[in-house]
Amino acid sequence: MAIHPARRIWTTLEPLHDVVYFGSGVKEAGTAVGLRGYWQTYFAFRAAPLGAVGPAAVLATFAGFHRSMVTRALPDAWARATPEACLTARSAIATELLRGAGAGAAECARAVELLAPVQRAADPTGRPLFAANAALPLPADPVAALWQLATALREHRGDGHVAALVGAGVTGRQALVLQAAAGKTPVSVIRPARGVSEREWADAVDELRAAGLVSGEPDGPTLTGSGAALLQRVEQVTDEAAWNGALAALPSDAATELTTSLAPLVEAVQREIVPAVSPVGLRRE
């Protein structure tokens, strides 16, 4: 089956964005502006474009995180660091990490030239994380600008994915189970990374088992035929929404140029920074 062009572009942009989650020095960048530890840095850095929002907005937009995990970070983070300080810090560390992985000014500037019009033309309807990131001024540094564009368009897809899950009647926690059941991320990785207890995870598995979507035990669920079909529909809706809502503005030859020219940087990031197994669930091709 041919890979949807929106998915191909996502597999290029997602690893570039992900350096701010997995790169060396990210936690230190957060603590340097006053934040406390890795997870407070994660929530504050990612939520910063929205302003000093509380747990409710993050739970709704990030999807899948346990409430207690978010409330340990917010709103306390905003008493320690302003959203503006977090935006500056996350851009600086992401740029440093990409440059360390070999990002060059010329290829990044060309990618920015291709992606900036896509961001401007993208439909923000129902996409709060995208809209907030897209409203930020684009940095003059081409490496920093590429990271910001990759981030905005990644969040555009993510907002659409959450909408597709909601439309399919899947909760955030159930989506985590389906991801594990599909073999994208092991239970041992995704469950603690989202703050879900063993009991809560087992309850979600029971819900999906009763619906005929998964089989097996909580520590190793597998998709049924119906579950695989549902997940495929969700991914198709996500791809189409990402394409029709934004990426279709990129001509096919430009899309090929983008993915080809950035391939060496993406490979370096995946080799040096982003782990092969992570909660993101992006399979390496």
Rank of each mutant, 00 (worst) to 15 (best):
R90M: 13
D203H: 12
L149G: 00
A32P: 01
E14K: 10
L87D: 07
L176K: 13
L146G: 03
A248K: 12
E257M: 03
V70Y: 13
L282V: 09
Q232T: 14
L35T: 04
E272L: 15
V19A: 11
S68Q: 10
A85C: 10
R271W: 08
A164E: 00
L97T: 12
E107S: 12
T259Y: 09
D219C: 04
R67A: 13
A44F: 05
E107K: 03
A164L: 05
R8A: 15
A180R: 11
G245H: 09
A202P: 00
E285N: 13
G245W: 09
K27H: 08
A268D: 03
W201Q: 03
A211P: 00
R80W: 10
S278I: 14
M69L: 15
S278V: 13
L178W: 12
F130Y: 09
W78Q: 11
E272A: 15
D141H: 10
A92P: 04
G169Q: 05
F62D: 11
A202M: 03
A193I: 08
L138Q: 04
A2G: 10
T224E: 02
T256L: 14
T151H: 11
A105Q: 15
G225C: 11
R283Y: 02
D76V: 14
A47N: 08
L258I: 06
G195F: 12
P264C: 11
D239W: 08
A57F: 05
V170G: 06
L138P: 01
A152G: 02
A263I: 01
Q270F: 08
L250G: 04
